[in-house]
Design a protein around this nucleic acid. Structure first.
Lengths: 74, 74
DNA sequence: GGTCAATACAACGTATCCGTTGTGCGATAT
DNA sequence: ATATCGCACAACGGATACGTTGTATTGACC
């Protein structure tokens, strides 16, 4: 699969979970010591986040990284 | 969990799977267009790999990223 | 002894991440 | 009209990933 597609898919999935949890981008960002723009770029698929970054996001969403990857659209 | 621990754990897990598949660092590297040193640093936990990098590694190992994360020691 | 394979560490350069600031735009509310 | 909220995009800068080269160590094999 193409790199851009992979990034868009995981970004969209993170957005879905964030909204399901009732959080705004800013709220999620502040939970993990980042700012809203960071979350925006991630969800838009504009960056290639590091493993640690993904772990932090999962932590802020109160799910495991497995939960995020598990529900990725094929 | 500490950042260094997370990186060491995933590095060790990648090494375990690579060896189970009977590959050397160099062979795995060349399968995905990288070189031996990159794999060495990853397995040693010396870098914080990107999502795409992890996807490439999983691809080279012929497993899914979920398979790698699933078997991480708690 | 010599050679080769496998792994490890260090250093350099380019590319990229990611934190941050600034700006804009639509929707809602007062 | 103005303020506020949620989200988007661009640019700058410091930090770091990662490709690459070079080198060291260990062990197997001749």
């Amino acid at each position: 699969m193409k790199k851009e597609e992979l990034l868009k898919k995981i970004g969209e999935q993170i957005r879905v979970i964030r909204i399901k949890k009732g959080l705004t981008q800013k709220q999620l960002a502040h939970l993990i010591g980042k700012d809203q723009q960071s979350i925006q770029r991630l969800e838009a698929g504009n960056i290639n986040p590091s493993y640690i970054y993904l772990c932090e996001i999962a932590d802020g969403l109160n799910v495991s990284l497995l939960d995020i990857l598990n529900s990725l659209p094929a």
